[in-house]
Each structure stands twice: as C-alpha cells, then as structure tokens.
C-alpha cells in the first residue's frame, strides 16, 4: 500500500477534529475529498504533512513503507510528500531560485542522488515556469511576496512540478481562482500525473473536478469519511449539497 490511513483520530485544543478516519491510496490514483467547511479536510492535509499543532489520539499512517509518525515535516517532504497550501505564506527577501534549489537538493540527498548544479537548476526552473505560463519576472521576486491569489496558486504548482512528488496533496487549490487560472493550474497537475504518483485533492466545490478527473471521490463530514465512490458522487453534491450526508 502506498498511503494507508487507519482509524485516525486527531484533536487540537481540546477539540476532536478527525474521528476514526480511514483512507487508502494506491500508486497512480487520484483521490478527491469533498466536504463542507469545518469538516476536517485541511486538518487531514496538515496531519499528513506533519504540522506540529495537532495531537494524534489514535490511529496509524503508513506512507511508502514508513510509519509516517516517525518522520518530521522535512523528512516527509524529502520522501516525496508535497502539500500545495491553501494559503501560501510570504517569505520576504527570499528568492524562489535558491529556495527551491535547496529544497530539491535536500530531497536528492535523502534519496542518495547527486545534487543538481546551479545552471541545470536554473534551466529546469525556467522551462517549467514557461510551461505553466509564469512570467520570468515573477521568478525574480521573493517567495509569494506581493503575489495575487492566483499567482500564489500557480507558484505552488510550479514548485510541485520541480519537486516531482510521489504524493501531492492539493488543499483547496481552486479557492480564489478565476476560470483561466483554474485551467492553468489543473493543466499543470494533469501534465504531472503518471502511473507512479498519486494525488489527494481537497476541495469544496465540484468545479475543480471538471478539469481533474478523480478515480475516487470521498465525502468527509464531521471528521470522518461518510461515503466513497466514483466521480458520480461529485455530481450528486453539486446537485443537492452536503445536506444529505450530514
């Protein structure tokens, strides 16, 4: 099993957020999690990425034959987990080039691969940026600083395409995007998809799933997955809302 979440219960500040959640993802699969606000979708993303604010009450997560709880945030990232943030943070004064260059090399180091040199990296970054319709001038700016919502999301996808993760988690990547930006972002994701990597797409609306076709759709309500199935579920939600799952 590629990713196996078993009986996961999580709380933050005395509030139980995830309750006995189960989810299995195989290599090459695209999963979507849909749910109303406050159902725990983003918590799941952050628990997977290793954010330290949460208390794990129960359960196990297995990722690529590792007990995920044995790995810290950066080790999970280096193992090939990528989280496209709902709200990417600004890091003033830090340019994307050295930032991503260090990131990719720390991953390569863990995988016992040779580091990528400055020149090759700069070329790679430029070509991926142009694929995603990102202006070269944007690469000269500080990470996310002064970016519009759409720019930030495109930037996340650029980083994802450089780091080439085994498991990409997209947390509400569609929020705040207009139709054109949504197309660019989802195109980027579709280009990256292979039979060796997997996607976990967290979204509120069905719209995103018009562009990225999931193999499985899960409905999450109140901290647990209440229904799983194919893309027909998304259509159901579009029609009737989350009401009937609650």
């Amino acid at each position: 099993m590629f990713l196996e979440i078993k009986d996961l219960s999580v709380k933050i500040e005395n509030k139980n957020i995830l309750k006995s959640l189960n989810l299995n993802i195989n290599k090459g699969e695209v999963h979507a999690i849909m749910g109303p606000n406050g159902s725990g979708k983003s918590t799941l993303a952050n628990v997977l990425a290793g954010k330290e604010d949460y208390e794990i009450l129960n359960g196990k997560i297995n990722f690529k034959d590792n007990d995920l709880f044995d790995l810290n945030i950066e080790e999970r990232a280096q193992e090939g987990m990528f989280l496209a943030f709902q709200y990417p943070v600004e890091i003033p004064g830090v340019n994307i080039t050295p930032f991503l260059h260090s990131a990719i090399n720390s991953k390569r180091k863990r995988m016992n691969e040779d580091e990528i040199d400055n020149l090759s990296f700069a070329k790679l970054l430029k070509s991926r940026a142009s694929d995603l319709g990102i202006n070269i001038d944007m690469l000269k700016r500080s990470v996310n600083t002064g970016f519009s919502g759409g720019e930030k999301k495109r930037y996340e996808i650029l980083q994802m395409s450089i780091l080439n993760p085994d498991l990409a988690i997209l947390d509400e990547t569609d929020s705040g995007l207009d139709i054109d930006a949504l197309k660019i972002v989802t195109d980027g994701v579709n280009k990256l998809k292979t039979k060796n990597n997997s996607f976990l797409i967290i979204t509120h609306y069905q719209k995103l799933l018009d562009y990225i076709k999931p193999d499985y759709v899960h409905v999450m309500v109140n901290g647990s997955i209440v229904k799983s199935g194919g893309s027909e579920i998304a259509a159901e939600i579009e029609k009737d809302g989350f009401q009937k799952f609650q």
């Binding site: 290793g50 945030i73 943030f85 890091i91 003033p92 050295p98 260090s102």
Partner: peptide, 25 residues
C-alpha cells in the same frame, strides 16, 4: 513560514537561516 519551508524539504535550521537572510536582504 517555517512550516512552509520545511514542507518543501528544508531542515528547521536551513529554514531559519533562509528567513533571516531574507529579512536582512
């Protein structure tokens, strides 16, 4: 900011150094 950098694979120490260098730029 630290969480963001570490999620990209940078160690805690690398992340702090990067953020501080950015602050001083």
């Amino acid at each position: 900011q630290l969480y963001y950098c570490r999620q990209r694979g940078l160690s805690h120490e690398e992340a702090v150094s990067l953020i501080v260098n950015g602050f001083c730029k």
